[in-house]
Write a protein that binds this DNA or RNA. Structure first.
Lengths: 349, 349
DNA sequence: CTGTTAGCGCATTCAA
DNA sequence: TTGAATGCGCTAACAG
């Protein structure tokens, strides 16, 4: 009997085509159909093709929830970012999603908007949705969240920060060292009054690390970051502009500015242009991220290249490996590069 | 008997705390616990609080898959974008996700990278994951996809394009009209040689619409878009730079350039600066999107503001309404605004 | 308002 | 290699 016709009589009442329907049509047991789906090689070739045909003919699509319930895994993974509307995390998300997709996982995303409460809520919801693994940005958060995750017994990674001595697996880079290096470079140029434009520090360990790096460099050079040289604002160009206005109207304006993230640097550069403040002639500007604009803007931005895509991809790979049983080694810290371009130079005489 | 202690004897073997465990502890039937979760008001206050305490004490988290299986809805929705690593779709995704999250839905995303085959694959996977609704960008795609969706009986929206006479619900704006309007403006300035920098047109109905709008305006003014004035490249700054080089080295270079998306315009502006081509003195540049950079770059970009966030939010609202039983009216086309800034002016004499 | 009874669609024992 | 039986954790009738 040839298998054909989409309207092959379904045994089920009406709605859905189930695995049982396929089994009927293919004249095998439901268990066999299940095997065809999960470990095809364990099924006789003849039956296997019969089942395949039946699936085709009926347009059968497995029911994810039923599968998840029976097998205790959903092939879904979660990812919570502080934001998903910018190219920074966008690149990570994209890479994460693509890598997961290639491994036949589906990804659930959410944005915490840098709010720990929202993050916790999203983690809760995702756990409840039955994710098999989870990606989180940064390490610093309520222990309750980690306990929740552990209670569900699923693997997770934190990203965007390396963590040699941390209890949590981390895919990322050493923000502190990178910031220190960049600041060292500024000192080496002859700067001594280096201001810091930072994102909001509370609940943002990456930003805190970077600030720590600056401080370390300061100390190494026998100086100390003056309070009035540290400004903290949400990430955004407008904030960068505002910060530049504030800092340059001080009695002793800095000769260089370290920006914790690129939008702040762009804002600073645009505002400097608007005010006829020469960059780097009068003030040098350096930042973090190496977004697409960095090399296009004038002056071209000196910045730390941060492995955004790699992070997403490596985090995904780590989780995939863990899920498939192999315990991968803890990911090694990723590299950053200081990219020197035009926005930094010697301090004015 | 006071309810307490996290280690209250669980009836289940070991792993998971189930609804039945809660029922035991609270001395009610499983059904009552279920009701507490889904329609609390239908449960006696006393029992309700007892159940709540038990849930707390046990740290109970409902099992999404089991719920989905029994109730035939997963409270997950899918969204497939052509890309998710830029601020354009990022803003939409963010708004979509936030709106969904507020309505207690979880969102699954994927990027098709402008590839129809990948899109189909993602839709398949999402359907299989059991999404309750789906968001897709644009209308033009294989009918097979629409049939797949219909077979699953779930609601969907298309976005980024309005569709008065289309068979599919759409949340978006009229790309053609907006492009026509922008081109009209260019003509009104005195331009007659207007080039078009477009994204890849194949499989991108938004880009096609915009081109059609330009052509319409051309026709209205008694002209015709010359073939050599139309260049097609993937979206990206580098491509914009390349396109500018190409177009300005022609025998009769255009006096204005219509860019189908902002990255192309930025590239064009940067390249023009590099080549000492005055904008808008020698060539005017206009675009679509009104991304954050548009108002910051020099010259400030004349562009069509496109309701990116609104699209995400309205699409989510439409789906939420549909899912909750009310059949919302088909969304009306969203507004766009022509924002005239500095990058456009009269053609050179 | 509450408890009892049945599955939802599938994966997975275990025998054969 | 295959089939029959069982249960994953929950919701949805239905009675009471």
């Amino acid at each position: 009997m040839a298998i054909s016709s989409e309207s092959a009589s379904k045994s089920s009442p009406a709605g859905r085509v189930t695995l049982d329907d396929v089994a009927h049509l293919a004249q095998v047991s439901p268990a066999t159909v299940s095997r065809c789906l999960n470990r095809p090689e364990s099924v006789n070739l003849e039956k296997r093709t019969r089942v395949k045909q039946a699936i085709q003919a009926l347009g059968y699509v497995p029911h994810g929830a039923a599968r998840a319930l029976a097998s205790n895994q959903s092939r879904m993974v979660g990812a919570v970012f502080p934001a998903i509307d910018n190219t920074l995390f966008g690149a990570s998300l994209d890479a994460f999603q693509r890598t997961m997709s290639d491994a036949d996982y589906t990804v659930i995303v959410a944005s915490s908007t840098y709010d720990p409460a929202r993050e916790k809520q999203h983690v809760r919801r995702m756990l409840q949705s039955g994710i098999d693994a989870l990606m989180l940005v940064g390490l610093a958060r309520d222990d309750e969240i980690y306990e929740l995750i552990r209670a569900h017994g699923i693997p997770y990674v934190t990203v965007w920060r390396s963590a040699d001595h941390q209890p949590h697996p981390a895919v990322g880079f050493d923000n502190c060292a990178a910031a220190e290096h960049l600041t060292d470079y500024l000192f080496s140029l002859g700067h001594e009054r280096i201001a810091v434009f930072s994102g909001i520090l509370a609940d943002n360990d990456r930003a805190q690390d970077r600030l720590a790096g600056v401080r370390k460099s300061y100390a190494k050079h026998g100086h100390k970051l003056a309070d009035q040289y540290l400004i903290e604002r949400p990430f955004g160009v407008e904030q960068g502009r505002e910060m530049l206005r504030l800092i340059m109207s001080q009695d002793a304006p800095p000769t260089a500015i370290f920006c914790g993230a690129e939008p702040l640097a762009y804002g600073a550069i645009f505002e400097a242009a608007a005010q006829n403040i020469a960059v780097p002639g009068q003030v040098s500007i350096a930042a973090f991220d190496d977004t697409w604009l960095a090399a296009q803007i004038s002056p071209k931005l000196t910045t730390v290249r941060t492995p955004n895509m790699e992070i997403g991809e490596e985090a995904a790979k780590y989780l995939i490996a863990t899920l498939s049983g192999v315990q991968p080694p803890l990911p090694r810290p990723l590299e950053t590069d200081l990219i020197i371009r035009e926005s930094t130079g010697r301090p004015p005489a």
